[in-house]
């Protein structure tokens, strides 16, 4: 028993060191821009850079649009599968896992072949339509996280019985979906949304190959030319990601709506 406890503690310590030491190292390095003393100069430079603001703002917008489109696609799909087509669940799960299996670079080259300027649907023809393509590609990229989060939420409530209860009281489909189902999977949708945000905000491959001014390519550009600022940006990106994780926890455990026992 005691040996087991010691083993667990050793595993925890090794795991913590593995994750924390590089972070501490990066953070410490980001503070050494001023010779001989610690300072936040690297952060000051990063925040003052108009490209940082532009790319971060662009990626934030893309992330929000991705979340909106993702929710509109995933929630009704998951609801319908739960309610009427449970046999399709394995197939849909397989499809949603594809972006984890197929590298982003393969997907984006596929997009470029399908939607180039000489195709039937020339989405790469203008900046706005390329933004649209980028949003859709992000939706595909974040699909495993969004679908799993929403599906888990749907499974936690008895979708079929709640739907029938609402229908029995005279409700139609839009009312059932927006007033009964959505509020009860709100925490799950927000979890999916934060995971999507964390995925999109630092995404490099798709934004770079579609030539969009996103935060990921900016990180890469700074990393290639500067010393201390990339470390500061890495810490900032890390904090944004962890803030998202924290928000998932807050939303999940805050005003939690429990299913009736």
């Amino acid at each position: 028993m005691k040996q087991q406890k010691i083993g667990s503690w050793i595993a925890i310590i090794i795991g913590t060191l593995y994750f924390v030491v590089p972070l501490i190292g990066t953070f410490e390095f980001s503070l050494r821009m001023r010779r001989g003393e610690y300072s936040f100069d690297a952060y000051r430079v990063v925040f003052a850079d108009p490209r940082f603001q532009a790319t971060f703002g662009y990626s934030t917008l893309m992330a929000l649009l991705t979340i909106a489109v993702g929710v509109l696609i995933v929630v009704p799909t998951s609801y319908w599968i739960q309610l009427r087509l449970p046999k399709l669940r394995p197939l849909v799960e397989f499809i949603t896992l594809m972006p984890l299996v197929i590298p982003a670079i393969v997907i984006v080259f596929g997009y470029l072949r399908l939607y180039n300027t000489s195709s039937i649907l020339p989405l790469t023809g203008s900046a706005h339509s390329t933004d649209l393509l980028l949003v859709f590609s992000y939706v595909a990229l974040a699909l495993p996280y969004m679908y799993r989060a929403v599906d888990t939420g749907m499974r936690a409530i008895d979708v079929r019985v709640l739907t029938e209860a609402a229908e029995n009281l005279g409700a139609r489909w839009p009312t059932i979906l927006f007033r009964v189902i959505l509020p009860n999977v709100r925490a799950a949708i927000l979890s999916g949304a934060f995971l999507t945000f964390a995925t999109v905000i630092g995404e490099f491959t798709m934004a770079s190959l579609l030539n969009r001014p996103a935060f990921g390519p900016y990180l890469q550009l700074i990393g290639a030319n500067r010393a201390y600022e990339p470390a500061a940006l890495a810490v900032i990106a890390f904090l944004v990601t962890w803030a998202c994780m924290g928000l998932i926890n807050v939303v999940g455990h805050g005003k939690q709506i429990k299913a009736a026992p």
Partner: peptide, 28 residues
């Protein structure tokens, strides 16, 4: 079902978890 004016009570209660008791009763 929403055109029948038939009330139903389910085995698992099927109360809407996001609504208060009063809101549940008022739903229909």
């Amino acid at each position: 079902p929403n055109q029948r004016n038939v009330g139903m009570v389910f085995q698992s209660y099927a109360l809407f978890p996001n609504m208060t008791v009063a809101d549940n009763v008022a739903f229909g």
